[in-house]
């Protein structure tokens, strides 16, 4: 279970973009979170992925409460999440070849010797050729780069996937291919998914259930 309760978060404490919002994703389930751009759904996704510390509220991952975010979270907790972002250009270190990009989490966690095999396996799953793996981000298209970013998110075999507008910049075929890769991984690993987006047709087709941002449970605390 991924339980977010009464989360208030944002970039300015006086004007949080997320106010007292709760969201639960069951183990192995997939939830699509719909909402217009700028509503705060991406911030909530970042809170869930332990990348953004909320001003208040609690996050419980598989029964373990979260005590810190980003580097304050223990490594096992951080790496339980695979995150895919909207803009692959910004989500890829421009100096790394795609193969290094995908292998980076393994190297960062001291599992360097597994890198070659893992990269080869994942490249096949997301549909990247050997030749593409040797290129740098500026030498590939957005779609190809996003495939690499998805492979990077899967390389540590996370229990949870957070896809923040993963296909918003991509064409129909690449979108379908990436969603298929995510679903194949989930089917064999039992990982849960929180997919954030604004395309209701896509999320309805993709996820077990979809919720609209405006329909999320909110309790207003007295005196706030």
């Amino acid at each position: 279970m991924l339980e977010l309760s009464r989360i208030t978060a944002g970039y300015d404490r006086r004007a949080p973009v997320v106010r007292e919002v709760s969201l639960t994703v069951g183990a192995g389930r997939s939830v699509g979170l719909l909402g217009p751009s700028g509503c705060g759904k991406s911030t909530l996704a970042r809170v869930a992925a332990l990348l953004h510390r909320p001003d208040s509220g609690t996050v419980v991952i598989d029964g373990v409460p979260v005590r810190g975010w980003r580097h304050r979270a223990p490594r096992e907790q951080r790496t339980a999440f695979g995150v895919v972002f909207q803009q692959p250009r910004l989500a890829a270190d421009p100096r790394m070849r795609l193969a290094d990009l995908i292998a980076e989490p393994l190297r960062a966690t001291g599992r360097r010797d597994e890198a070659a095999a893992a990269v080869a396996g994942l490249a096949g799953r997301v549909g990247l050729s050997r030749e593409l793996l040797g290129r740098r981000p500026h030498e590939v298209s957005d779609g190809q780069l996003q495939r690499a970013c998805l492979a990077r998110a899967l390389v540590l075999r996370p229990r949870w996937l957070i896809c923040d507008e993963m296909t918003a910049m991509l064409d129909a075929s690449t979108s379908a291919a990436l969603v298929a890769a995510v679903e194949t991984y989930r089917a064999e690993s039992g990982a849960g998914l929180l997919a954030v987006g604004h395309d209701s047709v896509l999320l309805n087709r993709w996820c077990d259930e979809t919720v609209h941002w405006d329909e999320l449970p909110r309790e207003s605390r007295s005196g706030v």
Binding site: G127, Q144, S173, A176, A180
Partner: peptide
């Protein structure tokens, strides 16, 4: 045809390869 079939409101199947 394949491009349209990749749409989520249609078959949602990607075109094989790149």
């Amino acid at each position: 045809r394949a491009l349209l079939d990749a749409l989520p409101e249609r078959a949602f199947t990607p075109i094989p390869g790149m």
